[in-house]
């Protein structure tokens, strides 16, 4: 190893703004709504979800993102993965980040096992590699009894656990976990926190969005607090969480 120089930057978030146009009905305006012929004349309102957020994430960072509901945490994460376009500023990353949310199952009509294989192949494993890992993934997700059933029959907790197990089967350089751990039971939470630390130790960078200060304390070395689209604080977990708790008294 070379002398401890500056750590390698993995993600640079550079003065990022995100604005949504919301139709008067409350429906989010889509690109198609505003174009040419089919333009709708309804009044739109602009929601400023992120107002100039900047930070740099380094390798071996595991960053907790906290903030109240609607503060822009998920918008920030979606912008980092590229699912939400920025209206100003830009995000730079060393590799394509992967995001794990509590959303829908991968392919609901297929069994858990099939989803593991497909997910693994999509992540770039060969069929042989992923078949060798299926057992570990099932073991990790802890849903062996249901693995033959289609995923549409799974509870949201089971879905989230399986998705976490699939996505973390690969050592991602950048992994974003959006409240997925909250649905697991205590036992699963411990295992997944251990897995997050492992990814981080393998030179990965993990973002963890959560309302559980306990799981953030347990697995993060840095915390970013977002409030109303602005970055309030960025630093040591204890300090940031204490400050956050004080304003929420």
């Amino acid at each position: 190893m070379a002398a401890p120089t500056e750590r390698k930057a993995v993600i640079v978030v550079d003065d990022v703004h995100v604005e949504y146009k919301v139709l008067a009905t409350g429906k989010r305006a889509s690109a198609a709504d505003g174009s040419g012929l089919l333009q709708r004349s309804r009044r739109t309102r602009t929601v400023h979800a992120l107002k100039g957020v900047s930070f740099t994430a380094y390798e071996n960072d595991s960053i907790g993102i906290i903030g109240s509901n609607g503060s822009g945490k998920s918008t920030l994460m979606r912008a980092i993965v590229g699912l939400t376009p920025t209206s100003q500023g830009a995000i730079y990353a060393a590799s394509r980040p992967a995001m794990l949310g509590v959303g829908a199952a991968l392919i609901t009509d297929l069994s858990g096992e099939r989803n593991i294989i497909l997910g693994g192949l999509a992540l770039g494993f060969t069929l042989e590699e992923i078949e060798g890992r299926v057992d570990d993934i099932i073991e990790f997700s802890g849903i062996r009894d249901f693995i033959e059933l289609p995923m549409r029959t799974y509870s949201s907790g089971m879905t989230a656990r399986l998705k976490f197990a699939i996505a973390t089967a690969k050592d991602h350089e950048i992994l974003i976990v959006d409240e997925a751990l909250a649905v697991g039971d205590r036992n699963f939470r411990n295992r997944s926190e251990a897995r997050i630390r492992e990814i981080r130790d393998n030179a990965g960078t993990v973002f963890l969005v959560s309302h559980s200060m306990q799981s953030i304390r347990d697995s993060c070395n840095r915390v970013i607090w977002i409030n109303k689209g602005e970055l309030m604080m960025d630093g040591d977990p204890e300090e940031v969480i204490t400050a956050y708790d004080e304003t929420n008294q």
């Binding site: 390698k8 930057a9 993995v10 993600i11 640079v12 550079d14 900047s54 930070f55 740099t56 912008a79 980092i80 993965v81 590229g82 376009p85 920025t86 830009a90 995000i91 730079y92 990353a93 060393a94 394509r96 980040p97």
Partner: peptide, 17 residues
């Protein structure tokens, strides 16, 4: 912490590109 070269000498690429 603001950066003059956000791509860090070209090691980072813009997300969404």
């Amino acid at each position: 912490m603001t950066t003059t070269d956000p791509t860090r000498g070209g090691t980072l690429t813009k997300v969404g590109g």
